[in-house]
Design a protein around this nucleic acid. Structure first.
Lengths: 168, 168
DNA sequence: ATTTTATGTCAGCCTTGTTGACATTTCAAG
DNA sequence: CTTGAAATGTCAACAAGGCTGACATAAAAT
């Protein structure tokens, strides 16, 4: 099927996998899959009175233990005011510890506390469980393709951050 | 690497692609890829004073032309109050037409106007362009795997909706 | 005749994003 | 040593887009 309104349909490859239909499939599948992807953590977060923003913060503070606030801001791609609101709550609730930098005392280095670690574990476990089941159903070859296309979908700047993250 | 805190790590397959690392890769890749995925449409939407909610409505009204409000609510998974706010604006801006049902006069059937169609085209073109480039870079085999894993990631109820959508 | 369904709408609340302004502490450079 | 830049925190105000609850109307179904 050729979308008569598309200006890029003229460039569309003759190869079957670059049809309008396949592109649309991917677009809608991303939308619905992302819903599934966030469903399980959202349920857990609700119990504790947190939202997705808290999840993201907790995830990357765990992932990049000791990260500075600025680094976390770059990863999350939000304003400091927005992050600060989330961070303030996590700190006052005792899930995150903010340590003054040893070399540069202006910096704050963020760590999860035991309590924060516990929440992170619940969240990531739920998410890994779904990912695990999807991987298992889809099989090795599909997983490799999945990873590859996701990487290609990323914006260049974001891709660079993602690669940095992997190097650690 | 085995995550010592994970209760599911005991079930982890010996196969390489079901390691904690691969699972985490998928989780983080979904997060960053979704950012890339929404980036281009967001820029366009901003020019017109619309948000992602408008994009989703316009997308599925185009996709399911003549859909009832209830059907759209099911697809989008939001409350009618939330959708109504979006729909009201789209209608008053002349992007969406709401027709009284012929068989059941309680129903409203939604269609894009020329103006709505024009916005939809811009948005989907931007999104298809990125998807196209990702597909091309990743190759056929990867695309098949990508699609498969995304389908497996969906929640069962959402997957059913997705399948319904494909049947049309 | 009554109830249910599909829709719309009002009010109010929450989360999470934004901008702009401003304060503090600390580092770095002249 | 002074001055400017950097890292952080915070206040206020606003907007988008979720949510709940309540209520209204028209039409269909029972």
């Amino acid at each position: 099927m050729v979308d008569k309104y598309s200006t890029i349909s003229t460039e569309i490859d003759k190869e079957l996998f670059l049809t309008e239909d396949t592109l649309r499939f991917g677009i809608e599948a991303m939308f619905f899959a992302y819903r599934g992807f966030t469903l399980d953590p959202d349920k857990i977060l609700e119990k504790y009175g947190y939202g997705r923003a808290h999840h993201r913060a907790v995830h990357f503070i765990n992932r990049c233990s000791g990260t500075t606030v600025n680094n976390l801001l770059n990863i999350l791609g939000v304003t400091k005011q927005s992050l600060n609101r989330v961070l303030r709550k996590l700190i006052s609730d005792g899930l995150v510890r903010s340590d003054i930098g040893l070399e540069d005392k202006r910096e704050r280095h963020l760590h999860l506390t035991e309590k924060g670690f516990d929440l992170e574990r619940q969240l990531s476990e739920a998410q890994r469980r779904r990912m695990y089941s999807a991987y298992k159903k889809a099989g090795l070859d599909s997983v490799l393709g999945f990873r590859k296309v996701l990487e290609c979908l990323m914006d260049d700047k974001v891709k660079a951050q993602f690669d940095d993250l992997l190097e650690q």
